Computed example of a mutant assay.
Amino acid sequence: MSSALSNRTGGQIPAVLGSFIIGIIVLGPILWAFATSFKTEVEAVVVPPTIWPNSPTLENYTKVLQDAAFLTDLWNSVAYSVGAVIIALLVGIPAGYAAARFSFKGKRALMLTVLATSMVPGVALLVPTYYLLETVGLLNSGVVVTIILSARIIPQTVWFIANFVEAVPIEIEDSAMIDGASRFQIIWSLILPLIRPGIAAVATIGIVTTWNDYITVAVFAPEVAKRTLQVALVNQVFDAVGISWSYMMAFVMVASSPVIFMFGFVQKWFISGLTAGAVKG
């Protein structure tokens, strides 16, 4: 028995080492950015570099939060992301439910078409979409940007919701129908509470995807008043004055914090939601 336990422990060592190495690769740049955000600009570019600042300062964070355009950029990021996810759920929940529960001619072809639309690179649609919006005078429209962002996450939302609904036993709905419940009542009062973790997972993925989107806002809403935190961050790289690395790292930390806090808040639902659709019956 001790030999078997020893072999099992020895077999876990490569996995542990691999996880440790991956953790360093992933967390290393984040920790470096975090440390740099507390440095002065002189210390941020000193050679050889220092791992942690000798005299940590909050000056960079103060500059970020006192920037007149920061709150506007933050509001735009929140509005676009939350709005896109709401639209995607309003479309994806009924569509996913229909795909899971109804049988109709051409259903498989339709679902594959929906899936195929998510495989089209967004860059390939930039030029025709730009000319269309410019022609009808809808450039720099926050509503249009939100709709475009939602269109990019709707296909995956439909497929995820369909899988989550399929994991709910059909007998539960049959019993509700016998009791006189309508289809809307079944979806609202029965299905939605049961697939709540799945909805949380889909919403989390959607917000992270839209929050990190740069090209859509940069192309279709070039006005400064319509830009997001991501666009503002990239614009600093092209600033004629030069790059302040300590300030930029503080900006990165602040811009990333809303998504990090949100993920920490819904982590339990997110994990259970990702695994819920994998088990049927």
Rank of each mutant, 00 (worst) to 15 (best):
R152T: 13
V202A: 14
L233Q: 00
D179Y: 09
A69G: 11
D239Q: 10
A35I: 07
L27T: 13
M249R: 04
Q236I: 09
P29E: 04
G96K: 06
S81T: 06
K226Q: 15
N60H: 02
Y247M: 04
A255L: 04
P14C: 04
V241F: 12
V208H: 02
K226A: 15
N140P: 09
G28K: 05
I170K: 14
E223W: 10
I195M: 06
W245G: 07
V217Y: 02
G28S: 11
I87D: 06
L58E: 08
Y61Q: 07
W245V: 11
R152V: 07
P155E: 07
R227H: 10
I86M: 05
I260G: 06
T9N: 13
T117W: 03
A99E: 00
V279G: 08
L229E: 00
Q66A: 15
P155G: 01
A240Y: 11
P49S: 03
S6R: 15
L125P: 00
L5H: 12
Q236N: 08
I25M: 14
G23K: 09
G206P: 05
A68H: 12
N140R: 02
A225T: 14
E171D: 15
S77G: 06
T50S: 14
S244F: 13
F102E: 08
A162T: 14
I205F: 15
A15S: 13
S6Y: 12
E41A: 12
V266M: 01
V254G: 02
T50Q: 14
S175Y: 12
L233W: 06
L90S: 10
F102I: 11
G277D: 01
G96R: 05
Q12S: 14
V168H: 04
W269P: 03
S81M: 01
V120P: 02
P193N: 08
P193R: 08
L71Q: 11
K280W: 09
V144E: 00
